[in-house]
């Protein structure tokens, strides 16, 4: 995954960049399966690898598929990135260990959800129960965000100009998520 990301930095041809970005998303989905997050993996594979790639390709078709010159100012950003990364890694030193069952995150509301989902909702999938039932307002807000984005896209490029509303079907699919 990191190799794919690094290749993305180097590549000039935007078509290859888009394809690699899709691959990156699929690798992320595989990683989620390994980490027991099957629902997230589904969404990432469908939305991240699928719809995002379609959107990017549509943009390429409307614009250009070749990046111009190499970035001239490489040193300063590199230094900034390395410094930020070093600070962040220093910040992880006190974090709970990977897979630690006693980490604070696992002791707050998560046990409640795991215990109550069966009796409360009768659903076997806890993620679905939390998404649609316990935290339903989050999902409502998410729908509002998608609606706003769809309206924004249509206002920006939906008018009678040459680039027609080619992303409308993708937006519909997203709303179904």
């Amino acid at each position: 995954m990191a190799v794919t990301a690094l290749a993305l930095v180097r590549l000039r041809n935007l078509f290859a960049v888009v394809m690699l970005a899709g691959m990156f998303s699929l690798l992320a989905a595989v990683l989620y399966v390994v980490l027991d997050a099957v629902d997230v993996a589904f969404t990432e594979a469908a939305v991240g690898a699928g719809i995002t790639t379609v959107l990017l390709l549509g943009t390429l078709a409307l614009t250009t598929s070749e990046e111009k010159a190499a970035p001239r100012k490489t040193l300063a950003p590199l230094l900034l990135v390395v410094a930020t990364g070093a600070v962040l890694i220093y910040g992880t030193m006190d974090m709970p260990r990977y897979g630690d069952p006693n980490a604070p995150i696992h002791r707050h509301v998560a046990p409640y959800y795991l215990e109550r989902t069966g009796p409360d909702t009768g659903l076997p999938n806890v993620v679905t129960a939390v998404l649609a039932s316990y935290r339903g307002y989050d999902t409502l807000g998410e729908v509002a965000v998608i609606f706003t984005a769809a309206v924004g896209v249509l206002v920006l490029i939906g008018r009678s100009r040459r680039p027609r509303k080619k992303r409308q079907p993708a937006d519909k699919k997203k709303a179904a998520q």
Binding site: A37, V40, A110, Y113, L114, V127, L131, D138
Partner: peptide, 11 residues
């Protein structure tokens, strides 16, 4: 596994 982060990331 903890289901709550999964939900947040789905969103």
């Amino acid at each position: 596994s903890n289901p709550l982060p999964h939900v947040l990331i789905l969103t």
